[in-house]
Design a protein around this nucleic acid. Structure first.
Lengths: 115, 115
DNA sequence: GTGCTGCTTAGACAAACTTCGAAACACGAG
DNA sequence: CTCGTGTTTCGAAGTTTGTCTAAGCAGCAC
């Protein structure tokens, strides 16, 4: 930390991800790094009208309702989806800005690394 | 499970993520859903020449060498990075195709949900 | 060959995550 | 108001993950 060894290779010229930002993005990624939540997100996103109610989502899985509710809460806490109660049912929809941030994250890394 | 209630909303017209594919993508996402691995990936990707040696990566963290090696192995197992030993040191670089797949995953969901 | 440095593997443990069952809350119907 | 349905919250098991120490393998210097 104090004195670089200077025997290996050049130090990192540009450190694109600070420790704080990495932790913040990891929370976002961890929210989608689960098969159930990934499918939930895609179901909500591909649903006609851009909204899906919990009952539809629950029926699509072999999981109990509390489990689905928990996963939805994780996605909502991460800011990836939002919800509203309309009468008996609760409807969920995607927050495009948050999802777009994930997509943009990997764009610069996907290129073949310029000098 | 057996009989759909048919009282709530329309069934999902298009289910974009099959159970198998979701599980496969979750493995990929879980590999980057960690602050340390996220920073490792960005460090390797932003390093001059597109390659980074382990000694540089280890020095940048307050973690022991085995821990860094473990995280690198997770990224390598996921196919996101590759490595080669050249003499004393081991060099890592990014596999652009694998990273690009992550970026493309969120593109259709980031749009404001067509009808 | 012997010793030193760099990196990985193996095993162990604490923390976090996923899932469940039971209970509580919200809303409409009668 | 009371009841039934839909959804969330509350604890509690079982599993996975992140980190460490100790040990092993690979290559350079002498």
């Amino acid at each position: 930390m104090a004195a670089p060894t200077a025997t290996c290779c050049a130090p990192i010229a540009r450190e694109p991800l600070a420790e704080t930002e990495a932790a913040e993005l990891a929370v976002l990624l961890k929210a989608v790094a689960d098969p159930v939540r990934l499918r939930l997100l895609s179901m909500i996103g591909s649903h006609a009208g851009g909204e899906a109610c919990v009952c539809d989502l629950t029926d699509a899985f072999d999981l109990t309702a509390p489990t689905i509710s928990h996963h939805l809460k994780v996605l909502r806490t991460a800011g990836l989806i939002d919800c509203e109660r309309r009468g008996t049912w609760v409807y969920y929809w995607i927050v495009p800005a948050a999802v777009a941030r994930l997509g943009e994250l990997f764009s610069p890394l996907a290129e073949p690394a310029a000098v």
